[in-house]
């Protein structure tokens, strides 16, 4: 249903230029300002209709915020704005060298938890994955700067790789959490 200027994309809703590189502080600030206007707490005393509208508005603003501040979600969203729809469930990279490296990293993680100093080994592994993610993000920024079909294709491939790395990173986090809980 149409409410707010919902025809606007998330960037426009937040009053920001459409692009991969974003100002995180500005996003957080606009987010708070938008919620001040649409949040259901501003309508606790209003008619049911306004309450509904406010809930939809606040839901949209939350969704936009989650999308804009997360690089992977932002990239997928940007691609969709450019007419490239990714099926995140089904697509995967076919870069064999990359896949081999992922396998190796995964094995390292499995063995890390039984190392003498598991925290250090898992931590070091997370640092390395973090660096790889950073490098992918830098490449992504370049591709989105001039969104030609070739560059968008390249960005799409980077998204597929990012998914691997982010999944691995959260598995490393989970492994660290299990170490914490075992203490």
């Amino acid at each position: 249903m149409a409410m707010l200027d919902f025809s606007k994309n998330y960037f426009e809703l937040f009053g920001l230029p459409v692009g991969f590189v974003v100002d995180m502080d500005a996003i957080a600030e606009r987010y708070r300002e938008l919620q001040r206007v649409v949040h259901p707490d501003r309508f606790a005393n209003a008619s049911d209709q306004e309450k509904r509208l406010s809930m939809q508005g606040a839901t949209l603003v939350n969704e936009a915020y989650q999308t804009l501040r997360d690089p992977l979600k932002r990239a997928i969203y940007l691609l969709s704005l450019h007419g490239v729809d990714i099926d995140v469930e089904k697509e995967t990279t076919h870069d064999t060298a990359f896949l081999m490296e992922q396998l190796a990293l995964r094995e390292e993680l499995e063995q890390a938890v039984s190392a003498a100093d598991p925290y250090a080994v898992v931590g070091e592994l997370m640092d390395r994955i973090g660096l790889q993610i950073k490098s992918l993000l830098a490449q992504m920024a370049i591709h989105f700067e001039s969104p030609t079909p070739e560059n968008l294709d390249a960005a799409r491939e980077l998204v597929r790789k990012m998914q691997f790395l982010q999944k691995l990173y959260s598995e490393a986090e989970a492994a660290e959490a299990r170490l914490d809980d075992a203490v």
Partner: peptide, 24 residues
Amino acid sequence: EETCSFYVERRMNASVRSAMAGHS
């Protein structure tokens, strides 16, 4: 409520616009 629905939406949009207008 049905009669007013367009007005309620218009008001919500107006306040969002004014919030964002402050920014520019």
